[in-house]
């Protein structure tokens, strides 16, 4: 980019601009990454896409390039969907107590694609488990969609896992005695869909994932990449607003890992899902809008 893009004040299409702190390594971003960063900042102040295009056109960018960038930049919304307030998690063993998360506070907006990264043992998966109500914080609270989940009873947690959040696991965790279409259809049927509707929707999802010709294959007959795509399909089928992906690429080769990350990005953009991705690969974390770095139990948020 040859000129700086000015970011206006919220809902003010006038000349007043706000000072937004750029990431420390902003200058090392390539043009495409820079433009995506700018687009996200514009969307945060609720700037309309057509106004974003006008501003870039004034700077000499082509309409096609800007449109392409708009398509590939996450659908950020102003509302906070996940609010983590002073959350601490302590694991107690016979030998010692280990504090994995120390009073973490952070917000994730609806439509964001956030990567959580850090060294092994830094608490990435623990944080994900807490957001997904698979575990409980030792202290603090987690507000999801305006509700304090730490006060949920068992039935509310079950309902939350059924309707509000979808998981993608490191080891795929598919149902071994169901074929591909049934793995997805079962999720839909759990939520009340009829068998016929569930199968129809499952086939549509398999088509989206380029797995339609594998519909009758059992998980053991699918490759690692195909299994993980199927797991993503199951997550999509749930139609939950939040997708939690715990190291979905760690058991895949580079090519399949890239494919999975691209697929997650597509889901974030096309379907507006909020995605929290746990990864220990910094390069993969850069695919997200924002990276949350966990270190020594604390969280630092970095814009990508």
């Amino acid at each position: 980019m040859t000129e700086e893009l000015e970011i206006p004040k919220p809902q003010n299409q006038g000349e007043d601009i706000i000072d937004v702190k750029k990431p420390d390594d902003f200058e090392s971003f390539d043009d495409e990454r820079k433009i995506r960063w700018y687009i996200r900042q514009c969307r945060k102040v609720q700037m309309r896409d057509e106004d974003i295009i006008k501003r870039f056109l004034r700077l000499g960018w082509s309409a096609d390039a800007v449109l392409e960038a708009l398509k590939t930049t996450g659908g950020y919304k102003d509302s906070i969907i996940i609010g983590i307030n002073e959350v601490t998690k302590k694991f107690t063993t016979d030998v010692y107590d280990q504090i994995v998360l120390k009073g973490i506070t952070l917000d994730i907006h609806e439509g964001e694609f956030v990567a959580v990264t850090g060294r092994s043992g830094s608490g990435k998966s623990t944080l994900l488990n807490l957001i997904g109500l698979l575990d409980e914080p030792t202290s603090g609270n987690i507000i999801i969609d305006g509700k304090d989940t730490t006060s949920f009873g068992e039935s509310e947690k079950v309902n939350f896992r059924l309707r509000s959040v979808a998981f993608i696991f490191q080891f795929f965790n598919l149902i071994e005695n169901y074929n591909a279409v049934d793995n997805i259809a079962f999720q839909i049927q759990l939520q009340g869909g009829s068998r016929g509707e569930a199968h129809k929707r499952a086939m549509e999802i398999l088509d989206f994932l380029n797995l339609k010709d594998r519909a009758l294959f059992y998980p053991s007959k699918l490759s690692g990449g195909e299994q993980q795509r199927l797991a993503i399909g199951r997550a999509i089928a749930k139609d939950a607003r939040i997708i939690l992906a715990d190291e979905p690429t760690s058991h895949l080769d580079t090519k399949n890992a890239e494919m999975i990350l691209t697929l997650l990005r597509d889901i974030n953009i096309k379907m507006g899902k909020t995605i929290v991705l746990v990864t220990h690969e910094p390069d993969y974390a850069k695919k997200a809008d924002r990276t949350i770095l966990l270190s020594d139990g604390l969280a630092v948020s970095v814009e990508n």
Partner: peptide, 14 residues
């Protein structure tokens, strides 16, 4: 055991 855990993460109750 693992399959039960997966089913519970998908939203089935006890």
């Amino acid at each position: 055991k693992r399959q039960i855990g997966v089913l519970k993460s998908m939203g089935i109750d006890n």
